[in-house]
């Protein structure tokens, strides 16, 4: 599938996750966030940058790790991204859907 974000044509899968992280830009992130009814603030960006860092380092991402990340606690994570926080945040960050059950 293709979608238009920030004036660019971006490859996404059927659930809306970017296929290539290299196509992600902060503007693309802003527009995906808007689609999910989220207006990104400084705290959102802290979390998104953390997730992208973990992804680039090829580390598994889970809610438990996020809680221990010193970037955000679980309560705030849910407040920032209310509907399915890890999935939504991953989508906005341009990284694949997390595969963990935890």
């Amino acid at each position: 599938m293709e979608k238009q974000y920030a004036g660019k044509t971006i490859q996404v899968n059927e659930e809306g996750y970017l296929k290539n992280f290299s196509e992600w830009t902060p503007e693309v992130g802003e527009e995906i966030a808007k689609e999910n009814n989220i207006t990104l603030g400084a705290r959102h960006w802290d979390v998104l940058k953390y997730l992208q860092g973990e992804f680039k380092a090829e580390l598994p991402i889970s809610i438990r790790k996020i809680g221990k990340s010193n970037v955000v606690d679980i309560k705030e994570f849910y407040a920032l991204f209310p509907q399915g926080p890890l999935k939504t945040a991953s989508k906005i960050a341009g990284i694949p859907k997390p595969a963990s059950c935890l």
């Binding site: 209310p82 509907q83 399915g84 890890l86 999935k87 059950c101 935890l102």
Partner: peptide, 11 residues
């Protein structure tokens, strides 16, 4: 616990 957490993770 996993079922409850998994639910929340899906919104």
């Amino acid at each position: 616990f996993v079922l409850a957490n998994g639910a929340r993770m899906e919104g």
